[in-house]
């Protein structure tokens, strides 16, 4: 009986290493997403500022993150900046830094869109019953804005999870790299290795991203108005 190709997944430490790689991917994504949400809200408020210069700078920041490929940012930081800065930055840390920069910019735009899509009369109704600016934001604007930005935010989160695979290029041994390594030394024994390994990694990404999408849809339905 021929060796079933799928056995490669259970060979030796393969499964363990794949899951460790997955954990690194997840860790980078989680940390980046968390910080991006926080900084994204701040960036979004800057984008809505009354000050023209503040708005201009935040707009420029967003465009830089969108125009320059993330991979190039990773290279600039890992191979370029780390040479100037005296502190040693691990490749995982560089990855998180670049991702947070990117995520904050995108999240900022999502926040700006959500807040400015609210009818202006909502704010005026709050003003008319005597609420202070802070109270209007707390009770009226932010609760409604959160509902509106969930779809975009979830989409950004899944994009960030997928983009972690770029970390391979600056030396992070995340799940995709682990998969490549396993394939490299197993190819002779398991000719169908790529199919099973990449297939498995495919399902891992799916298992992480799909529940998030479902959660987002559920929230959207619940808040339908």
């Amino acid at each position: 009986m021929r060796d079933l190709g799928v056995n490669i997944l259970f060979e030796g430490l393969n499964m363990q290493r794949l899951l460790e790689g997955l954990w690194i991917t997840t860790r980078i994504a989680l940390i980046s997403i968390s910080f991006s949400i926080v900084f994204g809200i701040i960036t979004g408020l800057f984008m809505l500022s009354n000050n023209k210069i503040v708005r201009l700078f935040s707009r420029f920041y967003l465009e830089m993150m969108r125009i320059v490929p993330i991979l190039v940012w990773l290279f600039i930081f890992y191979f370029g900046v780390t040479k100037i800065v005296p502190v040693h930055l691990s490749s995982e840390l560089v990855c998180v830094i670049v991702f947070v920069m990117w995520g904050s910019a995108e999240m900022g735009d999502i926040v700006r869109g959500a807040i400015s899509s609210l009818p202006i009369h909502q704010k005026e109704s709050g003003i008319a019953i005597g609420l202070t600016e802070l109270q209007i934001y707390t009770y009226i604007i932010i609760p409604q804005a959160i509902r509106r930005l969930i779809p975009g935010a979830i989409n950004l989160a899944t994009r960030m999870i997928k983009t972690t695979s770029l970390a391979v290029f600056i030396g992070v041994i995340e799940v995709l790299k682990v998969g490549q390594q396993i394939i490299e030394y197993s190819l002779l024994t398991y000719p169908t290795a790529p199919l099973w390994i990449y297939g498995f990694i495919f399902s891992l990404y799916f298992m992480i991203c799909y529940p998030i999408s479902v959660l987002a849809r559920k929230l959207e339905m619940k808040w339908q108005h």
Partner: peptide, 21 residues
């Protein structure tokens, strides 16, 4: 301090604008 004054002046708009959430 308008937010204090506005407690004494009630206003109703054409677009009612109740808070939907």
């Amino acid at each position: 301090q308008w937010h204090l004054i506005r407690q004494k002046i009630g206003m109703v708009f054409q677009s009612y604008d109740l808070f939907p959430h």
